[in-house]
Structure formats: C-alpha cells, structure tokens
Design a protein around this nucleic acid. Structure first.
Lengths: 333, 333
DNA sequence: TGATTTTGGTTAACCGTTTTCTCCAAAACG
DNA sequence: CGTTTTGGAGAAAACGGTTAACCAAAATCA
C-alpha cells in the first residue's frame, strides 16, 4: 500500500499536521524536525496524494484547455507552448477537442468544473455567451484565446486580426493584384470577421472594389480550402490572388491551383494566415500572416495564472500584433 | 456556493447515501424517490464534485498521456483519436510532452501518480525500464504505444516495424534501386531498430549489399531530416533512394534534395513512414509506410480500459500491420 | 398467523489532506 | 521572580463524496 501522511507522521513520532506543514513549507517548524521528516518521507518513498490535497485545499493545479482539434497544427503548436508554460508554473493541462461543437463544448465545460480545474483556457467556441456567463458567475478563472465575446467582460488574448487581414491584402495590392479573393474560416468567428474587415479596408484604401462574390466562407481543413479555392478558380473569372484565412486553407488553395495546372505564384498568388510550421513545408513556401503562437500561449497561461492567484483582478484584453511573413507563394501580377 | 450532496439530501429529506446511490445508479432506490432526487438535483443545478468522488472511490477517470511532442503531427493525430475514444469511455486525458527526455518523463510519471490517474498511455521513452517497473509494482495500468521494453511484461500496442521497414525497402528495390540509404530516428528506440532490420532483411533478400555508411541516425524533425539527407547527398556517391523513418524526416529529405537541385522522384526516390496528413501536403505526395494511427490509438485506450476495469488481467501485445502507400515520391531508377 | 424474504433506506466509517485553534515550554522582559 | 511573548507542535474539524453493515416495514410464503 502506498504510504500516507499518517504513516510518515507515525514513523516520525509527530502529528500529521506537522508533516503537512513541512510538505507545504508553511507554519513554523524547527529545522531539526523538518529534516527528520524530509528524510523519512524520502525513505518511505512517500508522495502526497494530490486528490486529497485538492479536496481539502480546493486547488487541483489543473487547467482545462478547450480547442477545436489538436490535430490542427495551429492548435497543436499552441497547446505545446501552453503546456510548457503551465508545467513551469506547476499546472497540468487537460485537453478537450470540441470540433467547434457547442454541445461538446458545454459538456466539457461542466465536466471540467466538476473536476475542479483551477482555470480554463478557451480557444474554441463560436461565441456561446451563455455558458461563459454561468462560468464567470461561478468565479472560475477563464481566458479566451483568439475569440471574443463582446457582451461580456472576460480575459482575452488575441491577435489583431484586422491588421493581419489588412497586411495580407495590402501586400497583394502592392504586388499589383486587383482581383483578390478571400477564403474565410467561418462567419461565426469574430476573428474571421475582423480579417475580412481588414481585407475590405485595404481594398478600400487602394480604391479597389469589394465584390461579394470574391468572398467564400469555408472551414478549417485543407480539403475545405481545396473546395473553396476550386469554386473560385472554376468560376467565370479567376482571381489573380487568394487570401486564405489560415494556413490549411492556403495549402488547400495551392493544391487546388496545382490540380488545375496553375503555377503558384506565377499564375496565382496565395497568402495564408497563422504561420504554422506547415508554411515552410509546402512548395512554394507560403507567404502568410504570422501569429506569435508561442507568445499567445504564454500570455494566455500567464494571464490565467495571475487571475487564479488573485494577483490581478481586473479583466483584461491582450492584443498581440501579427506580422506578415513574405515567402514564395506571392509575386507581382 | 455550489450545492453539495448534503444540500440535495436535506432538500429531499433523505440521507446523502440515498442521493449518492441515485447519482451512481447502484443500490436499491424506489422509482419515486429516485425521480424526486433527480428533479431536485436539476433544480439546484447540482453536480457531484469529482475530486471528492475520486478521493473516496479511488477513481479519477483521468488518463495520463506521455508523448514526445504534441506538435509533431503523428502524435497530434494519435492523441486526437485517443481523446475521442477516452471521452466515449468517460475519461479525460492529461497531456505530457516529454521531448523524449528521461527526466521530464519520470517527473510526469510521479506527478501523474500523485494525481491519481487511473491509467497511463506511454508513447514516449527510449526505454526506461526502471521507472516502468516501479509503476507496474504499484499496479497502475499502463500501455506502451509503439515502444517496447523486452525485459518487462507490459501491455503494448504497436505496428510491425520490421515489416514496415521491409515493405518500404522492397518497394524501392522493385523499382530498381540498388543504392538505398536509410535515415533512422534514433538508435535507442526499438521501433527504429526494427525498421532498420526490415530494411536489412529486404536488402539481403534481393542480394543487395548492406553498407554501414548508408545508415544515418537522426531525430524527429524536418530540420534533422534535411541535415541527415544533406550528409548523404553531399557524400561522394549519392544514393538513388532514401528511406526516411518518419514523414518529417522524409519531408526534410525532399527539401534537402530540392535545395540541391535534385528532382524527386526523378533523381531521388523518397519513402517516409507514418502517413500523417503531411504526406499529402508536400509535393510530390509522399510514398510512405502507413500506420493505422487511429486504430493504434483506439486499441491502446481500449486495452488500457480493459485492464483498468479488470476485465482482462493478462498483459498483452497488440501488433497492427502497416501498409505501404505508394504516391509520387518514388519512381523507377 | 407467524416466519422469512425483499425492498428501500439510514448510519457511520473512511478516503488523505489542509488548516484553525489550542496548548505548552522556554525565552524574554520588567 | 512573576509575567508576557514566542516558537513549535498537536487535536480535531473540515473538504464532499462512497460504501459496507444494518434495520424497519412491506411483501411473500407455508
């Protein structure tokens, strides 16, 4: 049987309270007994039961991470950085893949609460203010990543999507493109809408007309990108450039072009978004709007941590700046 | 304050034992009281505290998943399937990125134990029999994925790496290649050794000489693949084909070839291993040894589950078969 | 009708910590 | 030398459930 704090206490001839105090380094303990107990713990191969500890202290040192799909490299990379940072701070992360489905999302949310996670990282959810509201009522610290719920005061870490959309489009315009299509991930996501707004703003800036039929709403996968780009390329007039709102879509776009015998970038320029490692995997290497993924992840975990420790009470909104990374998938028209 | 089982019991005019029984659907409860309690629970918005439940029942419904790096698509895909299956069975998964470092691995291992996970999925670890041994002493169910520790009787799910290595090499030989190099991930991993053995066996079969200097030991990343392939390609005699022991290495190999002006597959055939989604992302699409990733994941979780429930006591070893997927990165010499 | 089984529920111990008091002896103080 | 501080440790009550043992009332049986 695994030794408990009682076994240690008995062996050391002290009370469990004393042992508990040396474990948690609080309370007054003489150096002599401290050493004795530490020694005995090592000898018995004793490790505190964290479930019991959690029950009594109401801290589990666990964080819930909700994201659409960890097999999407953007989220995989993000979760990696989060886990790194969380581990440094003494937390563990429970992964929840929601597929952006509201039912799974709220299932996980209640599950995580029951499990007593200390905080939640929410990188999913096409805005479900209701469940968020009940969460914030319950005082469970939470930070939203790359998602916004304007109605609610809630901690958020995101990238300036408007600026990103603007930068991508501006880059294409500067290369002389006038017929630029855009493939957005979804219309429910604030981030998508922002990128689209950035696109429109850049067009307007250069007096390039905005056309509804140049906007295709798609999804998160390469396949979706292929299909969306296919529609654009098979239409009556082919755009000379496509701004795909994430790297997977951009890759799908490149593949769609290739399968129609179009050269990228000579005959079609493509810009992506995210700058996951995929951007340099495909050929041509993708020009893309780079998100500081690692920075987003760390900021999110740090912010959550500060809220959990009560170090900071005020809700905040951290906006990071994206940066256009020019590679080989774009060229002058 | 969140309601507890006491609040529910008081409100229903019964003892907490009764409430507990309706929660867990065990014990004899009349339909009438059951309904009343269910109703009251809903009304009070009561959810059992799973930490408390875990403490007394000694079940956390959590599984630990150790893997080298979730941002590696192979592991990302695997973890996704595991999480899916685990969720179906009522488990949550805690992710641990070990970077194949023994210190992180054992840190996580003790941490997970303290947390009281019900089982461990171990897809990492260059063989660290000692910590495994202590684990199995502690009766903590565990299954190894794609890793072997011959010394110990332990549950394992893996792919027939020998056969995979053989198939890849055979394919190249059948295409007339006689100078086939191999890039292995590591030499500490049983899976790598098996693939290498398969490679050697295929060569021997076709009376093709095995040469030490055609074997390069590398790592898990694209960069490592580029470097390893670079060494081979910059050597005195270029191989006509390279078998890279995972898709990332294969991609690195393709990039190394490209950066030297070599056409794949015309001037260099490349075979990968894993068949992650990356295989179809790059151009040319990768010929690769396909692992049934989803199947591996599900089998692993199911096996762990059966062990945890005591449904199956005997340790087992499940071997799945890889299948060569021929695409466009290989051609006749 | 009395004995026996079944049904539906209660009591209380237990899971392994944390934490607030309380207590005592020794040190410091006037 | 009597009195206050203080340092170090213990007792016991949480924390919120699970579960074995037990029991009263109702149902069944001969």
């Amino acid at each position: 049987m695994k030794p408990t704090i009682y076994d240690v206490a008995r062996r050391a001839g002290v009370s469990i309270a004393t042992v508990s105090k040396v474990i948690n380094r609080n309370g007054k303990i003489s150096e002599r007994t401290r050493e004795k107990i530490v020694h005995i713990m090592a000898e018995m191969d004793y490790f505190p039961n964290l479930v019991a500890s959690a029950l009594s202290s109401k801290k589990t040192n666990m964080l819930g991470l909700l994201l659409p799909d960890i097999s999407n490299p953007y989220f995989a990379e993000m979760s990696r950085h989060m886990e790194d940072r969380a581990f440094e701070l003494g937390y563990h992360i429970v992964i929840c893949n929601t597929d952006n489905r509201i039912d799974k999302e709220s299932d996980y949310l209640t599950f995580l609460q029951q499990k007593g996670v200390d905080g939640i990282l929410l990188a999913t959810g096409a805005a479900h203010p209701q469940s968020l509201e009940t969460l914030s009522e319950k005082k469970l610290p939470i930070v939203l990543i790359a998602r916004e719920v304007p109605q609610l005061p809630v901690n958020t870490v995101l990238v300036d999507d408007f600026r990103g959309g603007y930068a991508a489009t501006e880059h294409l315009l500067q290369n002389g493109h006038r017929d630029i299509a855009i493939i957005v991930e979804s219309i429910d996501l604030a981030s998508s809408r922002e990128r689209l707004q950035g696109y429109r703003a850049a067009l307007a800036e250069q007096r390039c007309p905005y056309r509804e039929d140049r906007v295709v709403v798609s999804d998160f996968s390469i396949r979706a990108g292929m299909e969306a780009a296919g529609m654009l390329l098979d239409g009556p007039r082919q755009p000379t450039a496509i701004f795909a709102c994430n790297d997977l879509l951009a890759i799908g776009t490149v593949q769609a072009a290739r399968s129609r015998g179009l050269q990228v970038p000579e005959q079609l320029s493509v810009v992506g978004f995210d700058d996951t490692f995929l951007a340099t995997v495909i050929d041509p290497a993708l020009t893309t709007v780079g998100q500081p993924i690692r920075e987003i992840a760390r900021q999110a975990v740090d912010l959550l941590h500060r809220q959990m420790t009560g170090e900071e009470q005020a809700k905040q909104r951290i906006v990071l700046l994206p940066e256009l990374v020019v590679r080989n998938s774009t060229s002058p028209v």
